[in-house]
Design a protein around this nucleic acid. Structure first.
Lengths: 134, 134
DNA sequence: CTCCGTGCAAATACTTTGCAAAGCG
DNA sequence: CGCTTTGCAAAGTATTTGCACGGAG
């Protein structure tokens, strides 16, 4: 591998954390990542998970869905898309399709002298499972 | 219904809290409400502010913009609208205009067997003040 | 040897809650 | 009176941070 280019921002655990977030659609919390990885990395600590998630988020490697029921939820899918949050069970579900008029966002941004870097749509309601009668 | 029509959900302090949230565009935190009201209500307690904000939110009297920098932000304007969050200073700014295709939301909801109660759009970026160089 | 990444535990930051006292119809 | 609302402080929960150690170059 290129040894010069890549900084030392590598470690087995960090890699595992990123992989865990990327390989699920559940939009996990730090706690979830910790519990998921713990069996394979018995000496993993929660602090490390928090540290790395924060770093990934900072780097734009992952994104935050927001804080739901007091816990921050992450998403390894950085493609802009909509999220649905179930008010009953707290599940976060990806919604395909673009609901936003991007041109209008840019127009608005210009009018209001804002620099818009990103945006996201959050829908609230009851998911199929909870509706069905859980 | 009987004569209990008017519920007893009234109190001077509760009224003041609601009024405070409604009379500002800053999308305040519980802390802000507390500090704003404290001079006029010297024996107001932070717990009361939290309790009442939670109740208002539950009743749909106010809405939550979400948790920004670890603090929940409220909005007395329950008309659906977009919010812009400044990544630099944390300011929350109202964005007029409807950016979402409501018909498409309903179509998506039906397809995915979800009951969508509400949705909101959160834009992220740098506000005019911070861009200007504050 | 020099750094970076980490475990661990203590520290923070916000929010919630239990309970007795106070308020209002 | 009976039920609601509150102050206060303690408890709770999620997240961050200080520090010394361990491993890779």
């Amino acid at each position: 591998m290129d040894s010069t280019e890549k900084k030392r921002n590598f470690s087995r655990k960090r890699e595992a954390i990123l992989k865990a977030v990327r390989s699920t659609k559940c939009h996990p919390t730090a706690e979830w990542v910790y519990r998921t990885l713990k069996p394979d990395y018995p000496d993993l600590s929660l602090g490390t998970v928090y540290r790395n998630l924060a770093q990934f988020k900072n780097d734009g490697t992952i994104v935050s869905v927001g804080t739901i029921n007091g816990q921050e939820r992450y998403d390894g899918n950085v493609t802009p898309h909509t999220h649905f949050v179930c008010s009953s069970c707290g599940a976060v579900i990806d919604i395909p399709g673009r609901l936003i008029d991007e041109a209008q966002v840019e127009k608005t941004a210009e009018e209001m002298h804002l620099r818009v870097d990103s945006w996201d749509v959050l829908m609230h309601g009851i998911c199929a499972k909870c509706l069905h009668g859980k």
